[in-house]
């Protein structure tokens, strides 16, 4: 009896681990933004950055809710299709991100860019490219290969 309850607890732990991990990441991003704003205050120039961070957070919360729903229904949080979608998303977003960095470096010579700002734009841009790439592959599927 004790063994069975241990196995059940073990399965519960594995399923919950991914959900909790995602929740922790979202909380860390929110905490970082809060610290950033409370230390330096909000200036109008930072509005677009906050908007992009908010969009990324919405995307992360959407993925979290999706995982929780799957867990509640009793279906796997990941299967062969979702793994393939993730692999293709990673490949495409990496490829496009290279062009983003080349573009940013090109712009750096022509527009006065603060180094911190350049890195910030690059990282946020990569996150957006990843989210868009996931949406593209998720709705397109993985046809004939």
């Amino acid at each position: 009896m004790l063994n069975i309850s241990n196995i059940v607890l073990e399965i519960f732990n594995i399923l919950m681990k991914r959900i909790v991990l995602m929740g922790v990441i979202i909380l860390m991003v929110v905490a970082t933004v809060y610290l950033w704003l409370s230390n330096s205050g909000f200036s109008e120039g930072e509005g677009p950055y906050l908007g992009i961070i908010a969009l990324i957070l919405v995307f992360a919360v959407f993925l979290l809710i999706r995982r929780i729903k799957s867990w509640k229904v009793g279906e796997p949080q990941e299967d062969e299709l979702s793994k393939k979608v993730m692999v293709r998303t990673a490949a495409l977003s990496y490829y496009v991100s290279l062009y983003l960095w080349v573009f940013l470096l090109y712009m750096q010579d022509r527009v006065t860019f603060d180094k911190d700002r350049l890195i910030g734009i690059g990282i946020l841009g990569m996150a957006i490219i990843f989210a868009l790439s996931w949406v593209f592959h998720h709705f397109r599927g993985v046809p004939n290969d």
């Binding site: 799957s70 229904v73 009793g74 279906e75 796997p76 299967d79 062969e80 299709l81 979702s82 397109r140 599927g141 993985v142 046809p143 004939n144 290969d145």
Partner: peptide, 23 residues
């Protein structure tokens, strides 16, 4: 949903299979 549970995949995988969007 029932078929998805029987073969241990997500329901959307069955949807994509039926639409021939996934092999």
């Amino acid at each position: 949903e029932e078929l998805a549970k029987k073969v241990n995949v997500r329901r959307e995988t069955i949807v994509f299979l039926e639409k021939n969007k996934y092999n």
